[in-house]
Amino acid sequence: MDEPTTRPDRDTTLVDEKYSLKADRDAFEKLRKDIPPERQKENDEKAFMDQLMSDLSRSPSEVRSRFSSIINKKRELFNKDMTKAREEFNKTQKKERDEFTKKQAEARKAFSKKKVTSDERKEFFEDLDGERKDFYSKQKEQRDEFEADMRDKRKNFEDYARAKTDEFNQLHRDYTKRHDENKKAQADMKKQTEEKRKQLQKNIDQEYESIRQKDPTVLEPTGLGQ
């Protein structure tokens, strides 16, 4: 008896690697890399909106609730990142102040051990005071820049959220219309099906009634051998 022929692996021999699903996904990702990041973002957002409103079985209120939930989560994440950025900034400035204060204290301590003239003492403390003013002036500039950047980021986020909400509202109006039309069509179909069922039952009942009302002798079987 001949030995059974070993069947080749479908995944490795029946199709070339470049036609496999993995290859297709790789090619898609490669193609995606050639798309500018901003366009990728627009495509992803459009796909998100399409997916959100693709299932007409969801009520409009459910779709809106889902969108609002996602927006709120994005806002929570944004606020969390903003809080973290502020904490890091405050931590950095405090560390710089502590180091600066320590440096000035060490300078004063070292200077106090020296024998100096009144002019030298005056000049030394004037220099320290100048360094202190420059340091805190620089920190204030950094904080002003930081706060301006934070305001810009928040404004950009709120503008983005508002724009996406406006876009959603426009699409949601169309979705509501399609949902209501689909719901009405399903209700009409259900009504028609029920009417057909009732009509069929009525026809059966009428046919049975006509048979029941006939002379019983007509329905009796003809005797055999007569």
Score class of each variant (00 low, 15 high):
residue 114 K to M: 05
residue 75 R to N: 12
residue 90 N to C: 04
residue 118 S to N: 15
residue 109 K to Q: 07
residue 109 K to H: 06
residue 102 K to C: 02
residue 72 N to W: 13
residue 75 R to K: 15
residue 92 T to D: 14
residue 89 F to G: 03
residue 78 F to G: 01
residue 75 R to W: 11
residue 68 S to P: 08
residue 114 K to W: 02
residue 107 A to L: 10
residue 85 A to N: 05
residue 84 K to P: 08
residue 120 E to D: 03
residue 72 N to H: 15
residue 78 F to S: 02
residue 116 V to N: 01
residue 120 E to S: 00
residue 111 F to H: 04
residue 101 T to K: 11
residue 119 D to L: 09
residue 84 K to W: 12
residue 69 S to K: 12
residue 72 N to L: 14
residue 92 T to H: 10
residue 68 S to Q: 13
residue 106 E to H: 01
residue 73 K to A: 11
residue 87 E to P: 04
residue 113 K to C: 00
residue 80 K to I: 03
residue 113 K to T: 01
residue 94 K to L: 06
residue 90 N to P: 05
residue 96 E to H: 07
residue 98 D to W: 00
residue 109 K to R: 07
residue 119 D to C: 03
residue 117 T to M: 01
residue 110 A to G: 00
residue 83 T to F: 14
residue 73 K to G: 07
residue 104 Q to R: 03
residue 86 R to A: 11
residue 71 I to K: 11
residue 83 T to E: 15
residue 68 S to F: 09
residue 73 K to I: 13
residue 73 K to H: 12
residue 82 M to P: 01
residue 93 Q to K: 13
residue 96 E to P: 03
residue 73 K to S: 12
residue 107 A to V: 06
residue 111 F to C: 00
residue 94 K to W: 01
residue 80 K to G: 09
residue 117 T to I: 00
residue 117 T to V: 01
residue 108 R to S: 06
residue 105 A to F: 05
residue 100 F to I: 10
residue 83 T to P: 07
residue 100 F to G: 00
residue 107 A to R: 11
residue 74 K to N: 13
residue 78 F to Y: 13
residue 98 D to L: 08
residue 92 T to N: 12
residue 72 N to I: 12
residue 79 N to V: 04
residue 116 V to C: 02
residue 104 Q to G: 04
residue 83 T to W: 11
residue 92 T to C: 06
residue 71 I to L: 14
residue 84 K to F: 14
residue 79 N to A: 02
residue 68 S to K: 12
residue 109 K to D: 08
residue 111 F to N: 00
residue 68 S to T: 14
residue 92 T to Y: 09
residue 77 L to F: 04
residue 119 D to F: 10
residue 113 K to N: 02
residue 106 E to A: 07
residue 86 R to T: 15
residue 110 A to T: 05
residue 100 F to L: 05
residue 119 D to V: 09
residue 111 F to M: 01
residue 81 D to L: 12
residue 69 S to N: 11
residue 112 S to F: 03
residue 110 A to D: 05
residue 106 E to M: 09
residue 76 E to I: 09
residue 104 Q to E: 05
residue 101 T to I: 11
residue 108 R to P: 00
residue 100 F to T: 04
residue 100 F to N: 02
residue 91 K to D: 13
residue 78 F to H: 13
residue 93 Q to T: 11
residue 72 N to T: 13
residue 100 F to Q: 04
residue 92 T to W: 13
residue 107 A to P: 04
residue 88 E to Y: 06
residue 115 K to A: 04
residue 97 R to W: 05
residue 74 K to A: 11
residue 119 D to W: 09
residue 72 N to S: 14
residue 76 E to D: 13
residue 101 T to Q: 08
residue 80 K to C: 07
residue 75 R to V: 07
residue 120 E to G: 00
residue 72 N to P: 10
residue 99 E to R: 09
residue 90 N to M: 14
residue 91 K to I: 04
residue 95 K to M: 05
residue 105 A to R: 14
residue 90 N to G: 02
residue 79 N to P: 08
residue 88 E to V: 11
residue 80 K to Y: 08
residue 77 L to V: 05
residue 87 E to N: 11
residue 97 R to P: 07
residue 102 K to G: 07
residue 81 D to A: 10
residue 84 K to I: 06
residue 99 E to C: 03
residue 101 T to M: 08
residue 91 K to V: 06
residue 91 K to T: 12
residue 81 D to Q: 15
residue 91 K to A: 12
residue 115 K to N: 08
residue 90 N to H: 08
residue 81 D to Y: 08
residue 115 K to T: 14
